[in-house]
């Protein structure tokens, strides 16, 4: 199963700029595919186009060379969305919510019960099946949100920021659970603006910004670059002359990301900082991460 997105564009009604501008991606079967980008990059728009909530103005999305809209029409359960919101009923219990969404998928009888039990077991919700959803903690709500998405045993699961607002323990559990989904034959598209999460569970990813794909490939391909990104924390602001010379990107009050053409340029930078009276509190060079890749591609911080 390969999901192919070819030159897809979408502009929201009344908006001046396109939310997605000629986006092309190939997402192979199996694995977790990450969509990384800051808020407003176009991740949710792309997810909405894939699950049919929006229609693209241009371009085509196919699944195994068949238009995705036809695939969804033939079997709506094949593609499932776990939205960013807690998209369930707060006044219903966990099991009532699961039964409702299972019924809405057309499931009934023994099959409905079996799917609900499997979803409860997967999300480890056994202790809270009778609790009203509105009384659950943030982490349990996220688990219920995920469990509902699995009721139809989808081949393609779209997860839109599934760990927003959860405690570290629940986040860890959710990431482990999601990472295990491809083993049961489900391809996962995972959107997040948390680079650590994407680095941890995605084998392939694309970086989106302002409606465009900046880079796509395996994690190794994206992290591999000659240009060195230097992380720096100083005791005072970086002088203007150095800011422009090294295309520095502020990532905190006194934190900066600087771009060095090579490691050999480091001694010169240190000398310039000393001449400017700047004392170095923290320095990191050589360990590339997605934050730095994003900075390198956009000259902006991912969290801007």
């Amino acid at each position: 199963m390969t999901l192919s997105i070819s030159a897809v564009s979408h502009t929201y009604r009344g908006a001046r700029e396109a939310a997605l501008d000629s986006v092309s991606l190939n997402i192979p079967a199996g694995g977790v595919f990450g969509l990384l980008g800051p808020n407003g990059a176009g991740k949710t728009t792309l997810i909405s186009l894939i699950c049919g909530l929006l229609e693209s103005d241009q371009g085509l999305i196919t699944l195994d060379d068949e238009p995705l809209a036809l695939v969804r029409a033939a079997d709506p359960a094949r593609v499932a969305l776990v939205p960013q919101d807690y998209a369930f009923y707060p006044m219903l219990s966990v099991v009532e919510n699961l039964r409702f969404f299972g019924g809405a998928l057309g499931l009934s009888g023994a099959l409905l019960r079996q799917r609900c039990d499997a979803a409860i077991a997967f999300a480890r919700l056994e202790q809270v099946t009778g609790k009203l959803a509105e009384t659950l903690s943030g982490g349990l709500r996220r688990r219920l949100n995920l469990a509902i998405g699995l009721l139809g045993e989808p081949r393609l699961l779209l997860l839109d920021e599934p760990t927003v607002g959860v405690d570290p323990q629940s986040r860890h559990f959710l990431l482990d659970a999601i990472a295990g989904l491809p083993a049961s034959g489900t391809t996962v598209i995972y959107t997040s603006h948390y680079m650590e999460e994407v680095e941890a569970i995605c084998q392939r990813l694309a970086i989106l910004d302002q409606g465009k794909v900046l880079a796509a490939g395996t994690l190794g391909e994206l992290l591999d670059s000659d240009e060195q990104t230097l992380e720096l924390r100083l005791d005072r602001p970086l002088p203007e002359s150095l800011l422009s010379k090294y295309h520095a990107v502020p990532s905190g009050a006194l934190d900066f990301g600087l771009f060095l053409p090579s490691t050999a340029a480091l001694p010169e930078l240190l000398a310039e900082l000393a001449a400017a009276g700047c004392e170095i509190c923290y320095l990191s060079l050589g360990r590339q991460n997605l934050e730095q890749v994003f900075m390198r591609l956009t000259r902006r911080s991912l969290r801007d």
Binding site: C51, G52, L53, R72, A73, P76, A77, V79, A80, L81, P83, Q84, D85, Y86, A87, F88, Y89, P90, M91, F101, A104, L105, I148, G152
Partner: peptide, 17 residues
Amino acid sequence: IIERQEGTLQRLRAIGL
């Protein structure tokens, strides 16, 4: 309104209801 605000209507649309 809860269905609309919580994204439940969107979810139901996404599963083809």
